[in-house]
Simulated assay, not measured.
Amino acid sequence: MRKFFLVVTLLSASTGAIAQQQKQPQQQQRSGTPEEQKACAHDVQKFCRAIMDESDLTILACLQQNRPKLTHACDQVLVSNGQ
């Protein structure tokens, strides 16, 4: 009987740990090379700060809306990716 309670306790502890891990936000992978990300990081911070946690497509739309204000480096990233 003691072994049964030990097993149940261990199972419930491991289930709680898994549930806690699932609640933590997933770190989102971003598109583009590290160099491309670096080229646009300042522009994203400046013009798209409110939506930085959104999808890449949302950020891309924001950058496109602010196209005239982008740095040359970020603009070149968009051009080189057909945007």
Rank of each mutant, 00 (worst) to 15 (best):
M1Y: 12
M1I: 08
M1H: 13
R2T: 08
R2Q: 12
R2M: 06
R2C: 01
K3M: 09
F4C: 01
F4G: 10
F4M: 12
V7L: 15
V7M: 09
V7K: 06
V7G: 04
V8H: 09
V8K: 04
T9P: 00
T9I: 13
T9W: 06
L10P: 01
L10F: 05
L10K: 03
L11I: 08
L11W: 06
L11P: 01
S12T: 13
A13C: 05
A13F: 12
S14E: 11
G16N: 08
A17I: 14
I18F: 08
Q20H: 09
Q20N: 06
Q21Y: 12
Q22G: 04
Q26I: 13
Q27A: 14
Q28R: 15
Q28D: 09
Q29T: 12
Q29R: 13
Q29M: 12
R30I: 07
S31L: 11
G32E: 04
T33W: 02
P34Y: 04
P34F: 02
Q37E: 09
K38E: 14
K38H: 12
K38L: 12
K38Y: 06
A39G: 13
A39Q: 10
A39E: 05
C40R: 10
C40V: 06
C40D: 13
A41K: 14
A41I: 13
H42E: 11
D43I: 03
V44W: 01
Q45P: 00
K46N: 07
K46F: 00
F47D: 04
F47H: 12
F47P: 05
C48W: 04
C48G: 03
A50I: 01
A50T: 06
I51L: 07
I51D: 09
D53W: 00
D53M: 09
E54A: 07
S55H: 02
S55N: 03
S55A: 08
D56L: 00
T58H: 04
T58P: 00
I59A: 01
I59K: 07
L60E: 10
L60G: 09
A61T: 08
A61Y: 03
C62F: 01
C62N: 07
C62K: 05
C62G: 04
Q64S: 02
Q65H: 03
N66M: 00
N66A: 02
R67Y: 06
R67D: 01
P68V: 00
P68I: 01
K69H: 05
L70G: 06
L70N: 08
L70I: 04
L70D: 05
T71G: 12
T71C: 01
H72R: 12
H72L: 12
A73K: 15
A73D: 15
A73W: 03
C74Q: 00
D75C: 01
D75S: 14
D75W: 06
D75V: 00
D75N: 15
D75T: 11
V77G: 08
V77R: 07
V79R: 15
V79C: 01
S80R: 15
S80W: 02
N81T: 11
G82T: 08
Q83F: 14
Q83L: 14
